[in-house]
């Protein structure tokens, strides 16, 4: 009987990494070629719009500097996101257990998103200097909200009947949380995590842009001021690449932590 399962698994349609990457790669290539042709044929000045070829060439020559500036950005992103995750889980669990805290905190969380980061980030430099701290705060500030909301929502989406089943077994609130609410929330947590990580890199760049010692953000600002449009865009390309890698990493984590989720989904479609 086990055999029939194996067979079903093997024949279920599966998207390979290649077939997933091919369509976006094709469109990207087409865009880059168009850009190259337009710039070369139109005779646009490199300081205004450099060709992709030039960006690649100059970027490669400046690779050590760019790499030296990428590392701190990555560090800030990870640290900021770690802080954000800690805050998000703590808040979401507190809110899940206490109706009073839910009423008290949810409006404040929503209000926190009305803070214009663009105005606050320069102040952070005044308050906390040019080091790591203001960056971590900005990243945490822009990413904790989607993750917290995703978690709160995930906990709430638990089947009421499943809670009742646990209650009939004699589970207290804590056991209900551990056995049902937490696992039920994990799929929406990973969705929220993807939204958060997309904001995290942009947040880091932005925080550096207004003032930093090193990092891709300040690198872009400095290069812009010396009219090195090509190097600004090279740094943008690196940022985009980093974002995509982190985004893909969330899928790896999802498969490792909740393997049942993707298997179950595949069995519905297959």
């Amino acid at each position: 009987m086990k055999n029939s399962i194996t067979v079903k698994r093997a024949t279920a349609p599966r998207t390979t990494a290649l077939s997933a990457l091919a369509p976006p790669a094709a469109i990207l290539t087409a865009l880059v070629i168009t850009w190259q042709v337009a710039v070369t044929a139109g005779g646009v000045q490199p300081a205004i719009l450099p060709s992709p070829q030039r960006i690649l060439q100059q970027g490669w020559e400046a690779r050590t500097t760019i790499w030296d500036n990428t590392l701190p950005t990555l560090q800030e992103t990870f640290l900021g996101f770690a802080v954000s995750l800690t805050v998000a889980w703590t808040l979401a669990i507190l809110i899940d257990f206490s109706p009073w805290l839910r009423r008290a905190l949810v409006p404040l969380l929503v209000a926190s998103q009305a803070i214009p980061i663009i105005a606050i980030a320069p102040l952070m430099i005044i308050w906390f200097g040019f080091g790591m701290l203001p960056k971590v705060i900005v990243i945490a500030l822009v990413t904790f909200f989607p993750v917290t909301v995703g978690l709160i929502d995930g906990f709430n989406r638990t089947d009421r009947d499943a809670i009742n089943l646990l209650r009939s077994m004699g589970a207290n609130r804590w056991k209900q949380f551990v056995y049902v609410r937490l696992p039920s929330a994990l799929p929406s947590f990973f969705t929220a995590l993807r939204i958060g990580i997309a904001y995290a890199v942009t947040g880091a760049i932005f925080a550096e842009y207004v003032g930093a010692e090193r990092g891709l953000g300040i690198y872009m600002a400095v290069m812009k001021n010396s009219f090195r449009t090509d190097l600004v865009l090279a740094a943008v390309a690196v940022t985009a690449f980093v974002s995509v890698c982190l985004f893909l990493l969330t899928y790896v984590a999802e498969r490792a932590i909740i393997p049942w989720h993707s298997k179950e989904r595949r069995s519905w479609h297959g």
């Binding site: 089947d159 009947d161 499943a162 089943l165 009939s168 004699g170 696992p183 994990l186 989720h261 179950e264």
Partner: peptide, 17 residues
Amino acid sequence: QHEHFAYMPQKDLLFPW
């Protein structure tokens, strides 16, 4: 009290995880 009854609800509620 709940401890005398074992309840099988209308849905099977087997947890995918």
